[in-house]
Simulated assay, not measured.
Amino acid sequence: MEKWSPQKIKLFQEKLLDWYDQEGRDLPWRKDHDPYHVWVSEIMLQQTQVKTVIPYYQRFMTLFPTVSALAAAPEDQLLKAWEGLGYYSRVRNMQKAAQQIMADYGGQWPNTAAELQKLSGIGPYTAGAIASIAFDEKVPAIDGNAFRVFSRLFEVDVDITKPQAQPVFYSLIEEVMPAERPGDFNQAIMDLGSSYMTAKNPDSEHSPVKEFNQAYLDGKELAYPVRTKKPRPVPVNYVALVIKTPQGYLLEQRSSKGMLANLWTFPLVKWQDLSDDEDLKTVALPQLATDYLVSTSNLRLKFRLLPAKIVTHTFTHQKWSLTLLFAETTTKQDLSFFPGRLIKASDFASVTWPKVQQKLWDEYQKSLSVD
């Protein structure tokens, strides 16, 4: 790995920042250097594309314009504002951090990366982004873009999925970044990684820093960054129970712990909870679901398969496949043993549900025209 001279570092800084001044993305959270704005945008941008985040960010700022407003927000309203972004633990941690700022810091933001990491849900990257952009601290913000850009610039052979990669890249970037405008430097790296130096199909020939990109110059750009392949998500089969009554649909709020915590869905049951048969066939599901609901909730309903596609949804470690079953009743059911409630379709906007539930509802709606 080549060590750059002070002259080369200075030239790199100038080229990068000149390009950023001319071509940096015009994003709503870049209108100022407010730490609250930086923080909200960075949390939203985790595993979510910029074009998706922009309307969420703007709506979030209307609802919760200050850190104190976020700290005091009702959880239901907060989760509804986040609906569709996924990974709801992120917004729950944001509220915890906002409450910490109000209670422990008198409503004032900590202004160093080290102190920021004491807040709930703020790790090294987010702390580096806030500290550098809002408080001009010379500290790297190392995300996937930074790993990719610097691994190619310097041909770093360290596996970025390993813990030892973080200190290697931190030292490398800290040496290259300027004492002045560290926040703009970090944002320029973000923009560079999402434009000319993308993971696939990079356009380094037209990059403003192509002469510094050693991997490009050596013709092996796509070999970087070095990373161990992630294991494939574990497949999990579910049935989704669409239960319609004159009073609405029966929805279930998931546990406060685990995946999709506190969110509302159709009742979801794993195939393995219906039968021990490893070769379970889809045609057996309606009767098994009928028996299961009687035994667990004392609900007597007759299910049938819907003419709907299998709904799939991939999480970090699991890939769900969900088969839609339908039951309709005109009689009043005793819900004493059922952990959910009846909700009219017109009132669905009042509850927060995850993306997988939206997929189920959309597929159910399509099936009505086929059924």
Rank of each mutant, 00 (worst) to 15 (best):
Q7D: 08
K8W: 03
K8R: 13
I9V: 13
L11D: 12
K15Y: 09
D18S: 13
W19R: 08
Y36H: 12
W39M: 07
L45N: 02
I54Y: 05
Q58T: 11
R59S: 15
M61P: 02
A73V: 06
P74D: 09
W82I: 00
Y88W: 03
R90D: 02
R92Y: 03
R92E: 01
K96T: 12
Y105Q: 12
E115K: 15
L119M: 10
G121Q: 03
P124M: 00
S132T: 02
A134F: 10
F135M: 07
V158K: 15
D159F: 07
K162G: 07
Q164E: 15
E180H: 08
D184S: 09
M190N: 07
Y196C: 03
A199D: 04
N201D: 05
S204V: 10
E205H: 06
V209F: 07
E211Y: 04
Q214P: 03
Y216L: 05
E221P: 05
V226D: 01
V226P: 03
R227G: 05
P233Y: 06
A240H: 06
Q247N: 13
Q253F: 06
M259G: 02
W264D: 00
L274M: 09
S275Y: 11
D276A: 12
D277W: 09
L280C: 03
V283W: 10
L288Q: 10
L288A: 12
A289P: 00
N298E: 15
R300Y: 12
L301M: 02
L305S: 08
T312Y: 06
H313S: 11
F315L: 15
T316C: 05
S321Y: 11
E328M: 08
D334M: 07
L335M: 14
F338M: 13
P339M: 14
S350G: 08
V351G: 02
P354E: 11
V356Q: 13
L360Q: 12
D362A: 12
Y364C: 05
L368R: 11
L368M: 14
